[in-house]
Design a protein around this nucleic acid. Structure first.
Lengths: 199, 199
DNA sequence: ACCGGATCCTAGCAGCGCTAGACATCCTGT
DNA sequence: ACAGGATGTCTAGCGCTGCTAGGATCCGGT
């Protein structure tokens, strides 16, 4: 009973991963609109109902892909931050890495930020990988800065806005590097910022 | 021939507006996922094919709603800017108005910025209402500032990011006012900004 | 009065997410 | 060794979606 059921559980976990990986691959090569339960089932060589024995529905599969994406993004940002030549440039490095990630993996980025998923963030159980991404931004600021979380939130918002608005052409697609420079200059360390405006 | 066909054209234009208005109302009361061609056709008391004699498809209807939204937003921002007590506070007023608009009309905002539509922005024929929205931000900066367009792009991006990330709970829903203050402080006039960082 | 064209609706297609129920397969207890 | 039950999988189908072909109907112009 034990060895056999363990093997089955192992196989089941592997198939779980296969489904997520296949969904992601399909999305990255043909776009999310091509990711249907039928096509996905065919690709993993199982019937549709098998998908539903692993996930509550399609949204849950997208959410699983998004979670993988957050983990990857966290690593990507962390490496960029630690590779920065000096701490003063870590913010720029992390921001640059973020925009890189978004433009190089648009489908994955959509799963993480645009598509409707069942992921809940605000509540207590914020997925750790998402928190890790956020913390990479926070770490770029002086630990003594009591507004570093606020800075991180606004920086992230700006980067996300730049990503989606330029991608859809609502702002010109060119000039990303210039925007990045501008953003980092304005949001660099508080010491370089404008006069303190209280509270 | 002339009077009658004119009347028909008038009626046709009115029905066109009716479709757009109904789609918007349906979206604002029940969400865009409730806006189906069947339900919409039933609401306007015509059959489905009539919709397709006015629009190329559902996306085109969403785009029409979005275009109305851009017009409204432009007026909203313009009023806010002109009502600002002094020019130095116009940027804050416009940003505040933007966030207001986004939170008070989430469905309309989604049509304008989130949902897939066939609207093309980057090309030469950027819809005038969208350009008008953008110009409201630009107008908050000194005409002599050669980077006012860049400022407007980044400000807009940040506002959009704040809107969608807080709405989905990826950043905390509270503290919008604080983010707004922070953003405006950092992006106020260049004179108040950090030390010039070249180019 | 009647013809011709514009207008509109009925009916249906292919595809979607999802699920009930039949079928097979394999482990377990005697 | 074998029956019985649990487990796992598939076939088939439901209600919905966006969209369209083809026929009926109505109405203005001659």
């Amino acid at each position: 009973m034990s060895a056999i059921s363990e093997r089955r559980e192992r196989e089941r976990a592997q198939r779980h991963r296969l489904i997520v990986a296949t969904a992601r691959e399909l999305a990255e090569t043909e776009g999310w609109e091509a990711v249907t339960t039928r096509r996905l089932a065919e690709r993993v060589e199982y019937s549709q109902p098998v998908l539903y024995s692993h996930f509550d529905g399609k949204d849950a599969i997208v959410a699983a892909v998004a979670l993988d994406g957050f983990t990857e993004l966290a690593g990507h940002l962390s490496r960029a931050r630690q590779a920065a030549p000096d701490p003063g440039q870590s913010l720029r490095a992390v921001c640059h890495a973020y925009l890189d990630f978004a433009t190089e993996r648009p489908a994955l980025y959509d799963a993480m930020f645009v598509l409707p998923t069942e992921l809940r963030f605000a509540s207590a159980e914020t997925p750790p990988p998402l928190r890790a991404c956020f913390d990479e931004f926070v770490s770029c600021f002086d630990p003594g800065d009591e507004r570093r979380e606020l800075s991180a939130e606004v920086i992230w918002s700006a980067l996300h806005g730049i990503t989606v608005l330029s991608r859809s052409g609502r702002i010109p697609v060119g000039g990303q590097e210039e925007r990045l420079d501008f953003l980092v200059a304005r949001f660099g360390t508080a010491e370089n910022g404008p006069a303190d405006l209280g509270s």
